[in-house]
Design a protein around this nucleic acid. Structure first.
Lengths: 200, 200
DNA sequence: TTAAAGTTCTAACAGTGTTAGAAAATATAA
DNA sequence: TTATATTTTCTAACACTGTTAGAACTTTAA
């Protein structure tokens, strides 16, 4: 009999509605304003129901963190696959990473704990972000083509990632007075500098 | 009569004890655990007394944010004044900035809202950080000495700052398994890359 | 129809920032 | 010194937060 199936389907629907409602609340008022009670209100269930689907609030945030990294990863793969040369791949990835961050501020802020309490979540970055491997691979190719084959690819990859994150997070703080033109130049400056720094 | 003086002196003492107690609480358990009631307990006053000295909790955080930027600024000036050549000054500043961040994690996290709710505070970075001018000045000198005098110093300064922040904040998340050796190499790699990128 | 199982709720606990208004301590004036 | 005014301090609440125990209701199985 399909009763169990129907039940698990309904359960999945509630879980889904929790995430959907949460996301809407976040879009409306940011992560700070997200609360269990507001979610319960939105899905028209009582508060404890939420705890039947998620161990706690942190688990909900973790789910979105996972989705964020998943989405970012897909974007980066797409960007890479649009080119053949590692230089162009790296450039495309940098732009894709940048665009992801600003088109999905909520995700990015959650993923890296920018201006919000998500300490425990953040420590799981190591497990969740798979794009470091993707990046590492391209950097290795770049180094292989360069005049300095002794350069540590992991170090370079980490530098690339860190700097890109820095550019983004500094620009994400404050100043609504968008200096998009400058941001674009900074990003371009960074990419060419980084690549020529490897090629020499 | 010195009654008014005594009173304002006592008031100042209470204000000071609030900040002192707050800082100890933060050192013990982090910004997340700081609460008005805990502060009140620590200074042996009732809760509303705190609101006679600070408009709200945010104002307390803002005070620490100010102190953080003040301290950082002093460190950077010290680092700069230890050298004459702009290349060495910039290098010293990068190290000083890095050291400040890791020797004063609490300050740095508050200043840049890493893993904590300090949105409103963070937007005041523009007003509080004075080291961008300091940095800009050195970058200008560097560019003046270089083969590319057309390079935008503000852009380069911003890049320097952003990347340094990225290196720090990525390394501040997670991984207690300190890879200090690698961090040192990344930092060195970044500095030499940045300077040679200007000089060309 | 009754017993068991599963679901959903109300109501609470302990914590948070914040504040109105009573109480106590102090300073001023008679 | 005593009475009034002022300032300081506190109690107690409000409106939130995450979380959970246990009652109530619904559904399933015998």
């Amino acid at each position: 009999m399909g009763i169990a199936e129907r039940k698990s389907r309904q359960k999945e629907e509630v879980r889904c509605s929790i995430l959907k409602a949460s996301w809407q609340l976040v879009l409306d008022d940011g992560w700070q304003a997200l609360s269990i009670r507001k979610i319960a209100d939105a899905i028209e269930y009582s508060v404890p129901v939420i705890y039947d689907h998620f161990e706690n609030k942190e688990a909900i945030l973790l789910e979105f963190t996972r989705r964020g990294f998943q989405l970012l990863n897909e974007e980066l793969i797409k960007a890479r696959d649009a080119h053949k040369k590692p230089e162009l791949q790296l450039e495309a990835i940098a732009y894709a990473y940048w665009n992801f961050a600003f088109k999905n501020k909520e995700y990015y802020q959650l993923m890296y704990g920018l201006g919000m309490p998500s300490c425990e979540t953040v420590k799981k970055i190591d497990e969740l972000n798979t794009f470091t491997e993707l990046l590492l691979d391209i950097v290795k190719q770049l180094i292989g083509k360069s005049n300095h084959p002794a350069v540590d690819p992991f170090l370079k990859m980490h530098t690339f990632w860190s700097m890109l994150h820095g550019l983004i997070s500094i620009n994400m703080l404050g100043k609504e007075n968008s200096r998009d033109e400058m941001n674009a130049r900074i990003l371009k400056d960074f990419i060419t500098g980084f690549i020529s720094g490897i090629k020499e």
